[in-house]
Simulated assay, not measured.
Amino acid sequence: MTTIDDYLHRLQRLLHVRGRMRRRLLTECRDHLQDASAQYGPEEAVRRFGTAEDIAASLNTEVAARQAQHATVATVLGVLAVAGSTLALLHSSDTGATAPAGWAIAFFAAAQTAAVCAALATLQAAALRRRHTTAPDVALLCRRNACALLAAGVTLFAAGGAVPGQGSPVLLLAGPVLAAMAGLSVLGTRSIIRGLPAARQLRVRSPLTDLGTLSGLTLPHVQPARLLPPTIVVASVTAFVWDHADHGTLATALTTAGIQAMLVVLGFLILGPALGLRPRRHLT
């Protein structure tokens, strides 16, 4: 076995990309090494090309970044499809059915979580098209997509527990099916960067960073934890106004605003590390 063949064999074992893309990458690497070998010799060509570990990590990350962007589109479509199935379920509920408080809170918490996670993933995926992507960035995007899909599924489940009724099986299953397909896409992307030490890092990434990248504006560098207080205020005020307009009682609106504030804090504490909004062990 020649020096180049031995190198390509090691590179092939380290690549997590599959199918036609894998064959194309290996062919391009072979062609480059053979051209360099004709000029510098096999050993020098391999040395100049870089270690198999570094090249494989770079190629895995590059391909995973592109697939993560496609998976984000599939995730958003899956979340919207589940939302459609949830609306179909609610519209088919028994007339006069009253949702238990626990199911209602679970429904609204999951629905908001799905929306926030999908928004964070969309913003990050769009920003990654304009900047260099690292393995922790791809891993974070996968986690945000996975959280959005899981929360969407919980939303549909909570709606079914809150308001019993009967609906079209096609409409009720369409959303979960599309969400499951999106989940497979996310898992496929995550498998490409598996084993990379950097992919295990829980990176903190502010949505303002991605917003600044997309807008071209120089936004202040603010840790996501500092965005929590204004988020609580906006969410609570919105919940108060919405509930007061719907029910008309001040006490109920204040209760709803308090529950909303609690949900925002709990969501930040529980899902913050996975979503890249705070470090794992302490707030910043």
Results as ranks from 00 to 15, higher is better:
2 T>K: 07
2 T>I: 09
2 T>L: 11
3 T>C: 05
4 I>D: 00
5 D>F: 08
9 H>N: 05
10 R>M: 06
11 L>H: 05
14 L>F: 01
19 G>Q: 02
20 R>V: 09
21 M>T: 08
24 R>Y: 14
28 E>G: 13
31 D>A: 11
34 Q>S: 09
36 A>R: 15
38 A>P: 01
38 A>K: 05
39 Q>F: 04
45 A>H: 14
46 V>R: 06
48 R>F: 03
51 T>L: 14
58 S>Y: 12
60 N>C: 12
61 T>I: 13
69 Q>Y: 02
71 A>C: 10
74 A>T: 08
76 V>F: 04
77 L>G: 08
81 A>H: 03
81 A>C: 07
86 T>G: 09
88 A>I: 07
90 L>V: 14
115 A>R: 13
118 A>Q: 11
121 A>D: 09
125 A>C: 13
126 A>G: 15
129 R>P: 03
143 R>A: 15
144 R>S: 02
145 N>Q: 11
152 A>D: 13
154 V>P: 04
157 F>K: 13
159 A>H: 06
160 G>N: 09
162 A>R: 03
165 G>L: 07
167 G>Q: 08
168 S>H: 03
170 V>Y: 00
177 V>K: 08
184 L>W: 12
184 L>T: 15
188 G>R: 09
193 I>C: 12
194 R>E: 13
196 L>V: 11
197 P>V: 02
206 S>P: 14
206 S>R: 04
207 P>W: 02
208 L>Q: 05
208 L>S: 11
214 L>C: 07
217 L>Q: 14
223 Q>Y: 12
226 R>W: 12
233 V>P: 04
234 V>P: 04
235 A>I: 05
244 H>E: 00
246 D>Q: 08
246 D>S: 14
247 H>G: 01
249 T>A: 08
249 T>V: 11
255 T>P: 02
256 T>L: 05
260 Q>N: 06
266 L>C: 05
269 L>I: 02
276 G>K: 03
276 G>R: 01
280 R>A: 01
282 H>C: 05
284 T>E: 01
